[in-house]
Each structure stands twice: as structure tokens, then as C-alpha cells.
Design a protein around this nucleic acid. Structure first.
Length: 535
RNA sequence: GCGCCCGUAGCUCAGCUGGAUAGAGCAUCUGACUACGGAUCAGAAGGCCGGGAGUUCGAAUCUCUCCGGGCGCGCCA
């Protein structure tokens, strides 16, 4: 049982004894930033005093007295502090419980808060045009979307990873015409695509192939290979054309009409998205009879809802203006707005040799994601993309990220894992076998380095929960860095075996190291970064 | 003009539902190696949290306003 449950129960009893009624719905407990304030702290006296017409400091004192009278398990003392905080000091035994939890539950079960309850969520990300290679900015959305999917899987959701292919419309025609022109040795059309890749791909194209069909496959293959390098796999590559072929667009239009959300004006067909907060209504069918981009996309989202409880989209910053209309469209179809979540990833600036990176020659006007991966490697690329919140613009410095030194966070974290593996190897070579935890005297773990590792491990379940609720995988990378720092410190000061280390202490430290390995593996798995055994 | 995101240490960034003396990494300076990989560890220094006002016992966090930056604002995709 989580130590917090014990503390909460005890606080509830103390509140009741102090005459507080009704009891607060939630009793907040936190680990104070300042260790002088104890191991755990609650602001419950501050939060309830006002409604109860009490002085917070007095109420807090009353709670402390009651709790000291009959202290919860692990608790050595309870103190009132500041304006009315109730601070708990705990014996280190509470951390030994954490060690037991980590090792009992292991990589598959530790830090798996059930937030999804088995609900099915469709995570759509990347969704790039297949007419050119993925660019470096796509990398952020790709790594972010995949990590969101991993977080949701860990937190009890059924997840489908999906990407949408814009395989119809003007851009595809221009792309096909560009391939055909290059193949024929003619200049690329004015509104065609200029990058070197067009010529490379045209060279590969068999004579007589349909440039549109062949080019579509070629573009998708390119995307697939790039994503594969990052260990990202979409279960579904959804074709926009298939919506037309399967009458899905007409069905969506009919559905919208039946909800009274469609009207005609100036020869065009409009959707009344202003009913749900959009700043203007949107055209579905242009006066020339063509569909806008929005219409198949609505049909697509409607289709996704037929096979999912929840939708999660990852879009680039340049599409944020599109959010309101899509959410409005889904509400016009009768969906709850919370069922469609749209995350916007801000832009990334790439720096190399201290200079803003130039557009690559290969694709003309973009930096290719392939080049970034080739430059820094997939692990460093993923970790870096996920190191900060997608809400703010990112500066991706290739020199820092490519460095194989400890000033590079990804190597710092991976090195921590590799060190653990090396310790386990050395210990095994020495003929020492790790005993079951029941046979280990965990109370030998008293060094601050050891306790820090356990304190950090204790925060992993909350970190995973918050990362999932908040759609912030960067919280996991921050945790991984913290755990790695604790591990390196431990490694420096605490030897698992050798002179002056008793057999019993070796066993206790082995358990600790194994638990740390579990934590790091969980974090790295969520980030999609490998956990190497050596470096 | 309107909308979304951002503004925190020299640099890159954290900071869950408002909590106590605002954190980390890099860079800088100073220390620590006869043992599991020193590819490490420890210490120092570095801040009107963009400005102002408000709400609150308490604001980096919430509200308003101003300033600065990015991205959008089409019967393009």
C-alpha cells in the first residue's frame, strides 16, 4: 500500500477528531522541495480552515497533536510549520516499501496507473504529404505522437497509431507532373516540386509507370523508412482517396445535413461551425463543385470515431487555426468536444556549427528528417525531441545532441543504464547470485545516495500519470535524467561489491540497482529510446 | 485587427490540481581518482520568473492589461 494512503487515512481521522465536517474531497500530499520540511507534507489545514471558520495554524497544530498521539506507519514525527503545513517525518522504512513495489511489479507493472479503463484511443500523427521526404520538423510530431501512444498504452488505453495520407488533390497532380517531367528530361513545371529527390525518384521510376500511383508508393516508402529508423510504426496508413471511393464523404455530408449544420450560399455548401465556437463558417463544397480540404478530413474523423472511443491528433503549429473548425465539426456530428483532443507542436529551429541550419539541397526547401537522424542517431533524436514541452518552440543543436559525452542528456541516461548492466555482469562474474528480496536486509540501505535513488523511484508512477494526463512525455525524460543522476551518484559513492562491502550489503545494493534498472527501462521505453547494456 | 503558443540564471529548458528559501543541464570557477568504466562525483557563482494591476492566508502558476517573439487568420492544402 502506498504510504500516501496511510497518511491520508490518518489525516482524515485527525480532521474528524478536530470536528471538521464535511471532510475535504481531496487531501493533498506532496514531497516538500525543502527536505527540512519533512518527507511528506499536507496543506489540508490551510485548505479547510477557511470554510470551517478556523485558524489554519491552530487547526494544523490540532492535527499534528492527534497524529503524534497515534502515528501512521513509518511516521516518526508530525510538525506544524509555516502558515499551517502539516509535515511528516518518516523512517527510511517507507522507502524500502518502494523498493519492494518496484521489484515485485517490474517493468511491466510498476508505474501503470489505469487512466484509460480499456478505452480505445486513436492517435493520429505525422500525416504528411507523400510528395516529398519527411522534414526535420515532422520529427518532433512523430516522436511526440509515438510517445503519447506509448504513455496511453501504459496507462490502460487501447491504442491505434494512425497516419493520414493526402493522396488526392492538386498537390499530388503537381507531384506526378514533376516526376513525369524529370523522367522525360524536361524542366519541372512552374508549380511542381524542385528538390533533388524528384530526380532521384524519377530515375528509379520504371518507364511506363503511372507517375501518380508510382510516386505515391515511393513517397510512402520514403516516409515509412524514415519512421522505421525512429522505431515508429503506424498500424494504419489511411488513404484520403479511399474516403471518396467508399462514399464516406457523401455519408459525412448527409450526416451533417441531418444535424441541420449545412447551408448553401453564393453557390457553395457551408458548414455552420460558428455554432460551436469557430470564428467563421466554413466551406465544404466550393462553388465549382470541388471539395475543400476540410470535407474529406471531417469524413476521416467521422470514420475514426466509428472505430475509436477517443481521438488524439498531433498537428504542427501552422495548423492551429484549423483546430476550432474540426472540433466544431465533430460537435455538429454529435460528439463530445473532449472526445477529440488536438495537440499542437510548436516549431523547431536546427542549429549546426553554431549557425542556423540551412535548407538541404536534396529536398530544396526543407531540412530532411533523414539527415537529422543520420547526424545524431535515432536515440538522441528521439530523446531530444521529447526533452521539452511541445508548447514552446525548440532549438535543436546538432552539435550538442551528436556529442557522445555526458554533457549530452541522452548519453547520460543511457550510460546510467549501461552501468547498471555492467555492475550486474561483474557481480555475476564474481559468482554472486542475487537473492530474492525476502532474503535481503534492505535496512542496510542508509546512504543518502541509496535513499535518493529510492525517493526518485517513488515519483515515477506520478510522473507517468501526469505525463499521460498532461500529454507531456517531456516529464518522463526529466525523470529519466533525475534517476540517472541519482544512479551516477550512487555508483560513485557506493560500491556494490569489493573491499569493505559485506555480502549482505552487496545483496541490498543489488536489489537497489535492479530496481533502478526497472525504472530507467520504463522511462526509456516510454520515450522510445533504447536501453543499452554497454556503450 | 483577431486567434493559438511562448517570454524563468550568460545559453538550452523544467516547474501537475496556486504552497514554504524558484530548480536542472551546459558554459565559468574550485575541488575529488590505487576498487564495479572518472564517459563520474562534489562545491561555488549566477534570478525585480518580460512590465504593471487584481484575486488569495499564499501567485512563476489564476484574471485583466501592456510590451516582445513565433505561428495562423482562403470557395489553398
Amino acid at each position: 500500500m502506498d504510504v500516501r494512503d496511510h497518511l491520508r487515512t490518518a489525516l482524515q481521522e485527525a480532521l474528524t477528531a478536530a470536528g471538521i465536517d464535511p471532510l475535504p474531497e481531496e487531501i493533498a500530499l506532496e514531497r516538500p522541495a525543502n527536505r527540512d520540511h519533512g518527507d511528506w507534507s499536507s496543506n489540508v489545514a490551510l485548505a479547510t480552515a477557511k470554510n470551517a471558520g478556523r485558524n489554519p495554524r491552530e487547526l494544523g497544530q490540532q492535527l499534528c497533536d492527534a497524529l503524534n498521539e497515534n502515528p501512521p506507519v513509518h511516521v516518526t514525527s508530525v510538525e506544524i510549520a509555516g502558515p499551517g503545513f502539516v509535515n511528516f517525518r518518516l523512517a527510511d522504512t517507507w522507502l524500502y516499501d518502494v523498493l519492494g513495489d518496484v521489484l515485485d511489479q517490474g517493468v511491466d507493472s510498476y508505474a501503470t496507473p489505469d487512466l484509460g479503463g480499456g478505452k480505445h484511443v486513436n492517435v493520429e500523427f505525422v500525416s504528411a504529404n507523400p510528395n516529398k521526404p519527411l522534414h526535420a520538423g515532422h520529427g518532433r510530431g512523430a516522436c511526440y505522437g509515438d510517445s503519447i501512444a506509448r504513455l496511453k498504452e501504459r496507462c490502460g488505453f487501447e491504442v491505434t497509431r494512425e497516419t493520414y495520407i493526402n493522396d488526392r488533390g492538386v498537390q499530388m497532380k503537381n507531384y506526378a507532373a514533376s516526376l513525369a517531367a524529370s523522367k522525360a528530361g524536361q524542366p519541372i513545371p512552374e508549380d511542381g516540386y524542385q528538390g533533388a529527390y524528384i530526380h532521384e525518384w524519377a530515375d528509379e521510376m520504371p518507364v511506363g509507370a503511372d507517375p501518380l500511383e508510382w510516386g505515391l508508393e515511393r513517397g510512402m516508402d520514403s516516409h515509412r523508412a524514415t519512421l522505421e529508423a525512429l522505431d515508429i510504426h503506424h498500424e494504419i496508413w489511411f488513404s484520403e482517396r479511399s474516403l471518396v471511393a467508399n462514399e464516406k464523404i457523401n455519408a459525412a455530408l448527409a450526416d451533417l445535413r441531418s444535424h441541420g449544420a449545412v447551408f448553401e450560399e453564393d453557390g457553395a455548401v457551408w458548414l455552420r461551425t460558428t455554432d460551436f465556437g469557430d470564428d467563421k463558417d466554413r466551406v465544404l463544397v466550393k462553388s465549382d463543385g470541388d471539395l475543400t480540404y476540410l470535407t474529406p478530413d471531417i469524413a476521416y474523423h467521422r470514420e475514426k470515431f466509428e472505430r475509436s472511443d477517443l481521438l488524439f491528433n498531433v498537428w504542427g503549429a501552422d495548423h492551429h487555426g484549423y483546430v476550432a473548425r474540426m472540433k466544431a465539426a465533430m460537435q455538429l456530428l454529435g460528439h463530445d468536444p473532449d472526445e477529440l483532443e488536438i495537440a499542437i507542436t510548436q516549431m523547431v529551429d536546427f542549429v549546426k556549427d553554431g549557425e542556423p541550419m540551412k535548407m538541404s539541397g536534396r529536398s530544396g526547401n526543407q531540412i530532411d528528417l533523414d539527415d537529422i537522424i543520420a547526424e545524431v542517431g535515432p536515440d538522441a533524436a528521439r530523446f531530444t525531441y521529447l526533452m521539452q514541452s511541445v508548447d514552446s518552440r525548440q532549438t535543436f543543436d546538432l552539435d550538442e545532441v551528436a556529442s557522445r559525452a555526458m554533457d549530452n542528456p541522452v548519453f547520460y541516461v543511457q550510460m546510467a543504464h549501461a552501468r547498471i548492466c555492467q555492475i550486474l555482469v561483474k557481480v555475476a562474474e564474481a559468482g554472486i547470485e542475487r537473492l530474492p528480496l525476502a532474503d535481503v536486509d534492505t535496512s542496510l540501505l542508509t546512504h543518502e545516495r541509496e535513499l535518493d535513488l529510492l525517493r526518485s523511484l517513488d515519483t515515477l508512477p506520478d510522473t507517468v500519470r501526469i505525463a499521460c494526463e498532461d500529454n507531456g512525455p517531456h516529464r518522463v525524460s526529466a525523470w529519466a535524467r533525475e534517476q540517472a543522476a541519482a544512479l551516477h551518484g550512487f555508483y560513485h559513492d557506493c560500491y556494490v561489491m569489493g573491499d569493505g562491502v559485506s555480502a549482505e550489503l552487496t545483496q541490498a545494493r543489488l536489489a537497489l540497482v535492479a530496481a533502478s534498472q526497472v525504472g530507467l527501462q520504463i522511462a526509456l521505453q516510454l520515450l522510445g529510446v533504447s536501453a543499452p547494456e554497454s556503450m
